[in-house]
């Protein structure tokens, strides 16, 4: 077996942290955007790689978070102060709650498993996209423009964050925090149970685990993280549209995570960064044929390296307690 590689994991984060020293402003902004997609990819990695729930509509939660942030900071929610902090809280709470309730409804009783769960989540994302297109109050087809940048304080002393460097640093910090939180959860007893459920639900049930509750809880965590990524997207991009709720982005994130490696958070995170950067280069060179290349790559990866291209390199050792001997 391959040696576990925590030094490599640390190195990746260190390299990202040092980027501002060598990367120009334009690319720094681009990198921040990629890391937002990376956070989104980690959310899917958690629910799919650990929980075994293949969510085909993860963009629903990303979009909910983005819209929550956009509507809040633009002051479009009656009675809700137009503050970024409130926006972040809503962007976590709204997708998390929706996922928890959806999860309880889907997993109770005999529960939806395998492809049926995927189809329902896909349908939910498509429905949300249609709703957003037709709902003029939230911008309809055109979406919401001119979302204010991240602002600290208010009045004359307010500081607006729109320079690439501070945005990069904020997104980097957010990505690292999300990574550490999800990693901690994966390596906690909760994570062990989740992987047990992934392997065999009935087995986990007769060993004393309320499977539906665990699945709904992990679904909610993943949705909240996706919503958080969406909120960052809204303030960084200053624009949200129904496209980020629906089918296309849901499929894209699936490809990033599958190519990177669904069971390893960092691999999924880098999967998003790498696929998106390659896309930027190749879509210039190949135009539409880029999608063909991506599709072929995806199929090859699923057939030849089902655990992902990057996962073997970034797999971490088990926590001491689960390795035993300690």
């Amino acid at each position: 077996m391959r040696r576990p590689s925590s030094p490599l994991t640390v190195a990746v984060w260190a390299v990202l942290a040092l980027c501002p020293l060598v990367v120009d402003d334009w690319n720094l902004g681009l990198l921040a955007q990629l890391m937002i997609y990376g956070i989104f990819a980690m959310s899917l990695s958690f629910i799919w790689g650990q929980g075994g729930l293949l969510c085909f509509g993860q963009a629903l939660f990303f979009g909910l978070g983005a819209y929550a942030m956009a509507l809040t900071t633009k002051g479009l929610l009656p009675g809700v102060p137009a503050s970024a902090l409130v926006g972040f809280l809503l962007a976590l709470a709204l997708p998390g709650t929706v996922a928890f309730l959806l999860g309880l409804a889907l997993f109770r009783g005999r529960g939806l498993v395998g492809p049926y769960f995927g189809i329902v989540t896909l349908a939910a994302a498509v429905i949300a996209e249609r709703l957003a297109v037709n709902w003029n109050y939230i911008g309809g087809f055109n979406g919401l423009l001119d979302i204010p940048p991240l602002t600290f304080g208010s009045g004359d002393g307010a500081i607006e964050i729109f320079e690439p460097l501070p945005i990069f640093l904020i997104v980097f910090g957010a990505a690292l925090v999300v990574y550490l939180l999800l990693l901690g959860l994966e390596r906690s007893p909760f994570g062990t149970v989740l992987r047990g459920i992934r392997d065999n639900e009935m087995r986990a049930a007769f060993m004393g685990y309320d499977v539906a509750r665990y699945k709904a809880a992990s679904f909610a965590v993943a949705a909240a993280v996706a919503g958080f990524a969406g909120a960052l997207f809204a303030i960084q991009f200053a624009f949200v549209s129904p496209a980020i709720l629906g089918f296309a982005l849901s499929t894209e994130v699936l490809i990033w995570v599958a190519l990177g490696g669904k069971e390893v958070l960092l691999a999924a995170f880098l999967g998003a960064l790498v696929v998106k950067s390659v896309e930027n280069v190749l879509s210039d060179a190949l135009g539409q044929y880029w999608l063909l290349v991506l599709g072929i790559l995806f199929i090859l990866s699923v057939v030849l390296l089902p655990r992902g291209l990057l996962a073997p390199v970034f797999r971490l050792r088990l926590p001491r307690g689960l390795r035993g001997g300690g």
């Binding site: 007893p189 062990t192 992987r195 047990g196 392997d199 065999n200 088990l318 307690g321 689960l322 390795r323």
Partner: peptide
């Protein structure tokens, strides 16, 4: 659980 270590199975 075949993919789990002995310690994880006991956990």
């Amino acid at each position: 659980f075949g993919d789990f270590t002995v310690a994880e199975n006991l956990a």
